[in-house]
Each structure stands twice: as structure tokens, then as C-alpha cells.
Amino acid sequence: MESKPIEHHQSAHCETGVVHLLFQQQGISISEPMAFGIGSGLFFFYAAFIKVMGNPLIAYRSLPGSIFKRNCQRLAVRFRSERFRDPQRGKERLDELLGEGRALGIQANIYWLPYVPAKFRFHFNAHNLIVAGKRGDDYLISDPIVEEFSICDSRALTKARFCKGALAPKGLLYYVEGRESSINWKEAIREGIKETVNKMLYSPLPILGVRAIRYLAKDIEKWPRKLSSEEARNRLAFVVRMQEEIGTGGAGFRYMYSAFLDECGVLLDRQVLRRASVEMEEVGDRWRDVAVSAVGLCKERGDATFEKVARAVRNISEQEQSIYLLLKKEYLRREV
């Protein structure tokens, strides 16, 4: 392998950070927002009927793993991924690949990672990070959401890689095998935006895309009637946590997408993308307003009500919809 050793940089989100670091090692300089946009990471998913530990499933981003895959497809990077049934075998293979001098992306449960601040350790199975090397029984970890390299002992890492449950990692490891010499950035960006626009606007189900944002608004209105006041508040706080807690870059990834559109606008010299970036930034601000009033409601301060929060969420769905339509009409259709 002719690749350079990993240089660690902090990112806002784990998977986009992994793409940034692994690609950089291959000599492809791609920023985190760029990886997020080209990988069509922006999304909205809300399914009230699927409960995870009593809370409805909600996501502001696409399925874990898809961002890396899309980036590889669109930037002509060859990668391999492996999963294992047997933890011992998974550990041996990890050590073997590390021995060849590779840096590996892995999926792990965040609860068992000792270097993560205690407060953020929940059972979330789809955290992505890079294993950069091994010293004795300790692995050298480049976790994109942390500022520096971290250390994790092999027992904890194996446990984290083979945790069961929703989105179980099954020891997933992936690495870049090679790349084409030329990259068509313009086309990759276009593909990335196209997928996001289509997924957000034309969902066949009300649990995906902008329709899901409306679905969420409708549900928030119902909570005070359907649930006890404590449950309703806890649920609202949960929505805020999914949106703001470490790893989203704030405002449920909307700011990161705004950064992506801004970067593309400059790179391709397209004013429409920069305009969309400003509007997406505003949507991010509105999501944050929702967080402020939702938490105010939970803590019984301010004058927020469930109806007001729901209305704000509904307005966001309209605003987001208009951005995707703008991108479709003024960018996708006009691009040759």
C-alpha cells in the first residue's frame, strides 16, 4: 500500500469524518461537508410506530453506511467491506489488515467506547470510526468526532464491534482499495444533490423526506392529548437530542448541508447554490428555534406550547421543500 498514515482531524459527524480521513489518505482532498453532500447524507426520517427504547425512530440523515458507499461510487473509489459472525475471527482479521499497514473504517456501538464522554454513551450501534494501528493490546483510534487520536483496549473494541440489536455492526470493517486517477467533481456533486432532492421531495411513504417532517408536526400536536404530560415532554426532548447531540454538527445536519452548498457554489461558480446555502442556513436556524422552544416547554419556561412547536416544524417542512424545488429547477435542470 502506498497510502500515507492517517492524519487526524476533528469533524462534526462520524461517517462524513471517516470519508474525509480515509479519502485524504488516498490523496483525495474532500472536506467533511463535501463528503456529506456527495454522499447524499441529508435526509429526514420519522416513524412513530417503530419504537427504540420507548422512543419513536427519528433521523435527520440517511442510513448509516450509505454516505461512505455513495462517496466511493461517485468519486470512483474502490472499497471492500467485511462483516463477521464470529467476534474472534473479526478481531484477527482486523489485526491482519492493520498489519498490512491499512487504516480501517469500522462500525461500533458507542456505549462501549471508553474514550467517549460518559454522558454521550447510549446504545447506538452505528457509530463510525477509524482504527489506525495497534500497540500491544491497545488500538489507536481516529474517531472523527474527537479532537485527537484516542486509545481503546481490544476487549472494549471487540465488544463494541459485535454488539447486537438494531443496526448491529456485525464487526463491519471497510477500507479503500484503490482509486481512478481522475475525478469528475461536477458530476459527483450533481448526483449527490439529485438524490437528496428526489428523496426529500418524492417519497412514496409519509415517513420519509419532507412529508415526514409534516408527519412529525402532526404527531407533536397529538402528544399532549395522547400521552401524559411527562411522556410528551420526554418525547419532545428526545427529538431535540436526535437533532442537536454531538455528531450532527447542530440543527440536524442542516448547517453542514449549507456548508456543502456554499462550497459547491464557489467551486462550480453557481450563484443558485450559494443562494440555496443561505436558505438552508436559515432552515438550520429554524430547527434550532424549535430546539429552544421545545426544551423551554420541557422545562416549563417561556410561552411555547405543543401547537406552537408543531407549527414551527410544519413551517420548516415548507421552507425545506422550497429549497429542494429551487435546486431542482434552477440547478439540476439547467446543468448539462
Binding site: 454522558k119 426532548a237 442537536e244 447531540e245 430546539a291 420541557c298
Partner: peptide, 14 residues
Amino acid sequence: WEVEREATESAWKQ
């Protein structure tokens, strides 16, 4: 961010 801290705190309180 105070707002994020409070949301996380409410989960731990539960």
C-alpha cells in the same frame, strides 16, 4: 450549548 445540555440531561434524569 445549554439547550442541548438540557435535552441530554432530561434523558439521564429519566
